[in-house]
């Protein structure tokens, strides 16, 4: 379902059309500290905007402000041209019926089965017959590869499955606007590809506007029409993926490439190609290599040949640096 990066075509954005999301000078603070400090953003229909940034930079707070869960201290948030905090509860609900949210943990209702979770918005917000709702639930679950989990409770499924079920619930009403909070964290590479493909397909085939908060750079560059990098509650840069890649800002470069010395030492190109960067960050890798070396020394001193061979092989995979990149150690 996922497309290779090179074959991806960026959707033309039509700024003349009124934006689906319009954020003007958004400020939100907690305990005297501004988590969001003057954010300005617009998102247009059919566009997939990826929000990136280090942990604690305000991504989740921004998402919560966008769904009306946090009241901004200053500035405005407009969805579909309507200022969220100026709306009466019924009007706010009408706006919320047009959007879907995938929470980081899935946020499934624990007392309901996966199928009932997906059916809930359909039961509450549509006049569909129970048979039609049942059919819709099956279709949505099929889309995320969870057809067999319909009758299981959230406690009986894995975290990744819960996330996919959360996505099925988020798209149950075919929303015009979808928010994804870390959609691929905790998923295996195959499922990550499927979810990325689903995000792109929804945008392409149904013109769904998407806002994706993620740390997963591979996934981010794959799905994004535009990207925003946040740091300390401020927008560092906004641009198309190729613009972000070539952005000269030192924070953006560090964020995309990781700490240069650790990255080149521990994540040579060959290892990165094998997907190791999805599993370990640079700091973890350093610790991992250190642990491997200790284990190797111990195995050598104890004369465990098979173990020595295995550890050497693993270390050589991590340390085999192509010429010109230097050898890690």
């Amino acid at each position: 379902m996922s497309r290779p990066l090179s074959s991806r075509t960026t959707k033309p954005i039509i700024p003349a059309e009124p934006p689906v999301i319009e954020i003007v000078n958004l400020v939100k603070g907690f305990n005297g500290r501004n988590v969001l400090d003057g954010i300005n953003l617009t998102v247009y229909r059919g566009e997939t905007l990826v929000i990136m940034g280090a942990s604690g930079c305000g991504k989740s707070t921004l998402l919560r402000c966008l769904i009306g869960a946090h009241r901004p201290d200053d500035g405005t948030v407009k969805l579909f041209g309507k200022e969220l905090w100026g709306l009466a509860p019924k009007e706010l609900d009408a706006v919320r019926r047009r959007l879907g949210i995938l929470f980081q943990s899935g946020a499934l209702f624990s007392s309901m089965t996966v199928g009932e979770n997906v059916a809930l918005p359909l039961k509450e917000h549509t006049d569909l017959s129970p048979e039609m709702i049942d059919l819709m639930v099956k279709v949505k679950l099929e889309l995320v590869g969870l057809r067999e989990a319909e009758h299981l409770l959230p406690a009986q499924i894995s975290g990744g499955m819960a996330k996919r079920a959360g996505l099925a619930r988020a798209i149950a009403l075919d929303p015009e606007l979808l928010f994804y909070d870390e959609p691929t964290s905790g998923l295996d590479p195959i499922m990550t590809g499927i979810i990325d493909g689903l995000i792109m397909d929804l945008a392409r085939t149904m013109n769904v506007t998407s806002v994706v908060v993620t740390h997963d750079l591979k996934s981010a560059f794959r799905v994004a029409d535009r990207m925003v990098v946040l740091n300390n509650g401020k927008v560092v840069t906004v641009g198309k993926p190729h613009e972000i890649r070539s952005c000269p800002d030192s924070f953006v470069r560090r964020f995309i490439q990781g700490p240069v010395e650790a990255k080149t030492a521990m994540f040579p190109k060959s290892a990165m190609d094998k997907g190791l960067d999805d599993v370990l960050d640079a700091e973890d890798a350093a610790q991992h290599v250190s642990r491997l070396r200790e284990a190797l020394a111990k195995a050598e001193s104890e004369g465990r040949a098979a173990e020595v061979l295995r550890l050497k092989k693993e270390l050589s995979t991590l340390e085999s640096v192509p010429s010109g990149e230097g050898r890690g150690g």
């Binding site: 009306g68 949210i101 624990s110 918005p121 509450e124």
Partner: peptide, 17 residues
């Protein structure tokens, strides 16, 4: 409280429920 800390309450509100 468990539903609250697991974002289930937020999910209800965000789903206009």
């Amino acid at each position: 409280a468990t539903m609250n800390v697991n974002e289930e309450i937020l999910a209800l509100e965000a789903g206009a429920l």
